[in-house]
């Protein structure tokens, strides 16, 4: 039946290992970092919510003033006790909240330190992604910005896929839910590029048309990064600026 039966699989295992080694790339690392960043962010938010609720039990009057995560972190870093935080916020240390002893408060302090750690970790990962992109994909980095560029690479799988993608598809990457969600939803105008500053700055009416320009220039940037690696971002950004202004001026 077999013309040349393989006696054992070692040849195949070696060959497969070789191919895997060849095929794994920087884009795979970027994808993993992007997912690590989003998971870290989720963990950070989950812990923040739980910790906030616990703190609310202890000192609701203060917690009410620092519902925002950043504000919460900067306030509690001055100390978690009522007298410490009340002087920072300029409120009375009297509270209707449940009194906690110093040793009970350590649960809050420890969780807070973890939250600060997670927050720092996320910032570190974001910076790492940014520096990798700046070093390797300068056009995409400048035109789309590090966050969007990383997400686009992650969603498309690789820079190669992204560079081969029509800009209309790039425009809606990340909006798969609303594309395939059903027949009632209209075709989306933007996916992850929605957070691009040009689109954010545009009025609601023009967002769709500007998204098209941003997608087309981002696609161009991906192509330049993939095929030539030269820094043409200045030129691409200038073109984008011109086209965006044209739309905004209604010409």
């Amino acid at each position: 039946m077999n013309d040349k039966p393989d006696s054992d699989n070692s040849k195949y295992v070696e060959e497969a290992k070789k191919r895997i080694k060849e095929q794994l790339s920087l884009d795979d690392f970027i994808r993993k970092l992007v997912s690590m960043e989003s998971e870290t962010k989720k963990a950070e938010n989950t812990l923040f919510k739980a910790l906030f609720d616990t703190y609310f039990l202890y000192f609701p009057e203060a917690a009410d003033l620092i519902r925002d995560k950043e504000a919460f972190i900067s306030a509690l870093s001055k100390g978690v006790k009522r007298d410490e935080i009340s002087s920072y916020l300029g409120i009375s240390a009297d509270s209707m909240g449940y009194n906690l002893s110093d040793s009970d408060l350590s649960a809050i302090t420890d969780s807070f330190n973890q939250l600060v750690g997670l927050s720092g970790l996320r910032t570190m990962i974001e910076l790492k992604i940014g520096s990798i992109l700046e070093e390797n994909y300068i056009n995409l980095f400048k035109v789309a910005g590090p966050d969007i560029a990383a997400k686009l690479i992650s969603l498309s799988g690789s820079l190669k896929n992204l560079s081969e993608m029509p800009s209309g598809k790039l425009q809606v990457l990340g909006a798969e839910k609303s594309i395939f969600g059903g027949k009632k939803a209209r075709t989306p105008k933007y996916g992850v590029i929605f957070f691009h500053p040009e689109i954010q700055a545009a009025s609601d009416k023009l967002k769709g048309r500007i998204a098209r320009v941003v997608a087309s220039k981002t696609s161009l940037a991906a192509k330049v990064d993939f095929f030539s690696k030269e820094d043409k971002s200045g030129l691409i950004l200038k073109k984008m600026r011109k086209e965006v202004d044209k739309i905004k001026n209604g010409t």
Binding site: D3, D6, N9, V13, A16, R19
Partner: peptide, 28 residues
């Protein structure tokens, strides 16, 4: 591949199922 190192009757091939003939498989 990690599984194939433990189970010797698995012959791993990294490649496209559309082009099985070109993947250097000895069996026909």
């Amino acid at each position: 591949v990690l599984l194939s190192e433990i189970r010797k009757n698995i012959f791993p091939i990294i490649g496209d199922a559309r082009k099985v003939g070109e993947l250097g498989m000895a069996v026909t």
